[in-house]
Design a protein around this nucleic acid. Structure first.
Length: 667
DNA sequence: ATTAGGG
DNA sequence: CCCTAAT
């Protein structure tokens, strides 16, 4: 039995012919509405599966119709743009075919033609039916039959539609020369003709080679070289591409990216030319739609020359195979359905505008979106970074404003896909998470770079904060850590410092709030990603640690202890054993810190008690006992601060108990 | 890879 | 903290 159902159309076209309702199918209601371009013919088989072969037919028909249109156009010499052709083709396409009695076709002029077409199609369907029966009888695979059908249809066509026939003839002869025609016509048109040519060629080949299973695959190959649609797109200017885009999708686009346009158009062509296979499965008397897509060979050929698209297509390969696969068709299809649904969910960006398209080209779309986002990201990050770099704090607000817009688009995905860690710089992260990741870094970077001695300032501020307003620290990110044990996140400190700066320097309260929020965010982010040390490319080309992580007392003490245990100089040891948990401290850091401690312990020790209250705040408040200990150790290991030397030691002496040791060490 | 020392 | 040199 044969059933004609409305398949998904190529929604893009916002053609208004509307109301072309499929008389036959209940399906139409759920699915296609007034889908202008493609209503597919579907033959529902016993198992409820759609037979792709019919799609091919449809495509064929479409192509032929297009051809006809083109023909007309050229004959008339009218300047009408491709779009016209397009719209018409979509209008005249399957829908009318399906509803033979349909009065919807507004084009009175075409009525006659339409009728003939419809007749033709009916006949064709009959043939298909026959073929199918034959096929079933012989047990031959679907695709072969499909092509056979197509073939017959074509031949049929020749008889019925003179114009088309003519066109086909020319197509055949010109096959290799399509390109020449291209330049004068819009991309869309070109593509169409290309496709058409492709179709005709396929047919021819099939005819010649017989309709064997491999025929299909063989077809795709030879044609490949002939197709030049891609090249055409390549040659187009942006403006032209825009036109083409509009013609293809029926809407304007502001995208300037050539690649994007090209791919988009290619996809559009894919959609419109190649009737996707919409599989329907019958369950409980209901038709369950399965979004299945397939690209015709011709389309493949067109697209294939674009690497990106190629890749995309590659993804869909299995589906194609599935369609052609005689046996496992159903399973694969259903599998694909699953994926499709998933994809649909994730690729939300353009869903609104091109839901249909998205569905049909889901895979491509998804990847596409990702690519887009990536590109966007690049742009964005570049801008943001620089701006932050040059304008510093003042820009924060602006940045925050700018961000949400694009964040939102990607957000959902971010959350889901995000796998990366803040880790290394230059690490390639395949997901879209960059947005989130980069942001905090950028902010900090901006700040850092803005201040001539960013780090020092930061530190000071931090310490300031710690010393002076210990209270407000809490709102930052739980700075207690600093004072207490962990200090796993000095970044916290940094955040605080930032907020401080803002509070002092910027009079804008609103922004202040915003900032603190942001900072908070940053903090949390930093927290989560703690394990990795954020690095930043320096002007010189090297990489530099992102934050100056102030040494917490706990750390210092650990350090001291470590030195006491393992000896100064065994930094790697200490690092490994005592600082295992502090991933951001390197052995070099330990060494440096020790050096500083040494210096500190020997030099100002004496004076600090009196005046240093302020200074202390600025620089790490290392308790005297610790310093003493440091000194002890230093002497034990015969480490004496070089310049500070024994002189000072001897001179100033030191608090009580270490004296003897000092002495001994000194002596 | 680690260490030491200078910047 | 970064960088380099020397181990």
């Amino acid at each position: 039995m044969e059933t004609v159902v409305g398949g998904e159309g190529n929604d893009e076209g916002k053609l208004e012919e509307s109301a072309v309702q499929k008389s036959s199918s209940d399906l139409s209601s759920s699915k296609g509405i007034a889908d202008p371009v493609v209503y597919k013919l579907v033959r529902v088989e016993g198992d409820g599966r759609l037979v792709p072969a019919t799609d091919d037919e449809v495509m064929e028909v479409e192509g032929l119709l297009d051809d006809e249109k083109s023909e007309l156009q050229s004959l008339t010499g009218s300047d009408q743009i491709v779009q016209t052709i397009f719209n018409e083709s979509s209008l005249t396409g399957i829908p009318q075919i399906e509803s033979s009695g349909l009065s919807q076709s507004e084009n009175t002029e075409d009525t006659g033609k339409l009728n003939s077409r419809l007749e033709y199609i009916e006949e064709m369907l009959q043939k298909v039916k026959q073929e199918e029966r034959l096929r079933l009888a012989y047990g031959s695979p679907d695709h072969s039959s499909a092509y056979v059908i197509v073939d017959s249809q074509c031949s049929d066509q020749h008889d019925k539609l003179p114009g088309v026939d003519k066109k086909l003839e020319s197509e055949k002869t010109l096959q290799g020369n399509h390109t020449s025609v291209v330049p004068t016509l819009s991309g869309r048109h070109v593509s169409q003709s290309e496709v058409a040519g492709e179709c005709s060629k396929s047919r021819d080949e099939l005819r010649e080679g017989g309709s064997s299973t491999c025929g299909i695959f063989n077809n795709s190959k030879p044609d490949f070289s002939i197709i030049k649609g891609e090249i055409c797109l390549d040659k187009m200017s942006i403006k032209e591409l825009h036109e083409t885009f509009k013609a293809t999708f029926g809407r304007e686009t502001t995208v300037k990216d050539k690649q994007w346009l090209k791919r988009r158009i290619a996809m559009g062509l894919t959609n419109s030319c190649d009737v996707p296979n919409t599989s329907f499965i019958i369950r409980d008397n209901k038709l369950v739609k399965t979004g299945e897509e397939e690209r015709s060979n011709s389309v493949y050929n067109i697209l294939i020359e674009d690497p990106t698209v190629k890749a995309v297509i590659g993804d869909c390969d299995d589906s194609t195979i599935a369609i052609f696969s005689p046996t496992e068709d159903y399973q694969i299809v259903s599998d694909k359905r699953l994926r499709d649904s998933i994809d649909t969910n994730s690729g939300a960006e353009e869903a609104s505008l091109e839901q249909r398209a998205a569905k049909r080209v889901r895979k491509p779309t998804k990847r596409y979106i990702e690519e887009l986002s990536e590109a966007e990201f690049k742009e964005c990050s570049g801008k943001t970074v620089t701006s932050a770099k040059y304008s510093g704090l003042g820009l924060m607000s602006q940045k925050t404003q700018a961000r949400p817009a694009r964040n939102s688009s990607l957000d959902g995905r971010n959350i889901i896909t995000r796998l990366d860690s803040l880790g290394g710089f230059g690490v390639h992260v395949p997901c879209v998470s960059r947005v989130r990741r980069s942001r905090p870094r950028k902010n900090i970077m901006g700040l850092m770079k803005f201040h001539p001695d960013g780090e020092g300032m930061m530190v000071n501020l931090v310490e300031d904060a710690l010393g002076v307003n210990g209270s407000h620290l809490d709102d930052g990110c739980g700075n207690k850590d600093l004072k207490t044990v962990s200090a796993p996140d000095q970044s916290l400190v940094l955040c605080i410092a930032e907020s401080d700066i803002d509070k002092k320097d910027s009079a804008m309260d609103v922004i202040k709030v915003e900032q603190s929020l942001e900072l908070k965010h940053v903090c949390s982010l930093a927290n989560t990603t703690d394990g990795n040390i954020a690095t930043v490319p320096t002007s010189k080309g090297g990489i530099r640690r992102k934050h100056h992580r102030a040494w917490s007392l706990a750390e210092v003490m650990k350090l001291v202890e470590g030195v006491a245990r393992y000896g100064a100089g065994r930094w790697s040891e200490i690092k490994r054993l005592a600082f295992a948990s502090y991933s951001y401290r390197t052995s070099v850091d330990l060494k440096d810190k020790w050096r500083n401690l040494l210096k500190a312990s020997f030099a100002p020790t004496t004076a600090d008690k009196g005046i240093n209250s302020k200074k202390q705040a600025a620089s790490m408040p290392i308790p005297a006992p610790v310093l003493v200990r440091v000194r002890e150790l230093a002497e034990m290991h015969a480490q004496v601060p070089p310049s500070l030397g024994s002189n000072k030691l001897a001179k100033y002496g030191n608090g009580g108990r270490s004296v003897h040791e000092t002495r001994s060490g000194y002596l």
